[in-house]
Write a protein that binds this DNA or RNA. Structure first.
Lengths: 217, 217
DNA sequence: TTTTCGTCGACTGTATACAATCATCATTAA
DNA sequence: TTAATGATGATTGTATACAGTCGACGAAAA
């Protein structure tokens, strides 16, 4: 038996992937039975997987039942950031007050060393570290609602990046120094600084993507 | 035919109600088949209804599959407010910038008149107006993510109130003046004031409930 | 007495069949 | 020609049957 995970989860991962990389186009309708035939499972796990996608905001339900792949646009991108710019700084604020020594140690590992930077490390790798850094901070906030909500927004966010930018422009080098400042503030328990630095960080991240978008129109 | 809504939705409403008023106790496990037998529908709509409850945070899934009714405690209540105190002021901030004349008119209707206050209007009625007032502001923010997230938090919030306080203590009179200030700020487009007033409002709301809770322990 | 093993019962995961609804399109009547 | 009506197909909602898994309990062996 090679059945380590439920079909529901497998189908969910599959659809999520297909949507994220655009093989299922935004606006396209998801037909339970067609998917069922295509990947050869019954409708039950598919229905449930689709509910998960709905929860992620990756598909939207239309009146008549049935769902349609979410179609992102730049105005929504702004709305998304209006949320993130409130929640992530708050997470940093509480993280500065609640983070454990162990978590500090973990967090530090997600900062690239100067060595790595000088070496022109693979951008992709540094980008992954950055993501983990953010996740670590949110986790350290110790607030399950913050964690859940931000995680949710981040999922949609990456979808926007995929859909709007259509290429992997990573704002990597710019972010490194900002990350250092945030880390220092959190590690030393300066909650207000942590909040402020994080807010500036998110704001500049947003401006970067907007600029990129307007540039390539 | 008296079948206006799907069974899924009916079951969802039913379970939600049962959980909210405590007839299904916190910590209790929900067994699909038992519910199915009890209310005489098949397991399918029940499964789906349970997923909706899960989305609401009213039940939590345990490893082995199956769900358990969420068991609120005061620390989570604090976490909830740590989110609200960021998001609702942000909603007020954007509402001040984006609210339409029509929405201002609507919003004003959810402020009790002095006449109503003097008359010792039913507390419940004023409380309902207050809820609508908050909803109106969030709506006026024009940000679907803010709307969705805050709405979600509010649902959980009311569950906490039910479960923790076990009575309908409504912080009504205190809130009225705060609401007036917030309204004025939004209607006159003073976004920063709107944000600040709303933040103070949420904070004092939180303090009120904490005080009430500690008092009756 | 303790441990191990196996059976049974209770649940959930998955498949499948059936019912209901809605859209489309053609056909017919005005 | 146009509007109304009815048939057909596509798709989701709901019921139900079956399979797999885990835990509890008890019996047998050490």
């Amino acid at each position: 038996m090679m059945k380590r995970e439920t079909l529901k989860k497998q189908v969910y991962e599959y659809l999520r992937e297909e949507i994220m990389n655009g093989r299922i186009a935004p606006g396209e309708r998801l037909i339970e039975e067609k998917i069922a035939k295509k990947i050869e499972v019954s409708r039950s796990p598919i229905r449930e997987a689709i509910r998960l996608l709905e929860k992620d905001g990756l598909v939207i339900v239309n009146k008549r039942g049935g769902v349609t792949v979410f179609h992102p646009d730049i105005s929504h991108f702004q709305h998304l950031y209006e949320c993130r710019v409130e929640l992530e700084p708050a997470a940093a604020y509480y993280a500065a007050q609640r983070i454990t020594k162990e978590q500090i140690r973990m967090l530090r590992q997600h900062l690239p060393s100067k060595h790595e930077i000088c070496r022109q490390y693979e951008l992709k790798k540094i980008h992954d570290m950055n993501v983990k850094f953010h996740e670590g901070i949110v986790e350290a906030s110790g607030n399950p609602f913050l964690i859940k909500t931000i995680c949710h927004l981040r999922g949609i966010n990456s979808m926007y990046r995929m859909a709007i930018l259509k290429r992997n422009d990573l704002r990597v080098e710019l972010a490194i120094e900002e990350h250092f400042n945030i880390f220092e503030a959190i590690a030393s328990g300066c909650a207000d600084d942590a909040r402020r630095y994080m807010r500036e960080h998110i704001e500049s991240d947003y401006k970067f993507y907007v600029h990129l978008y307007s540039e390539r129109k």
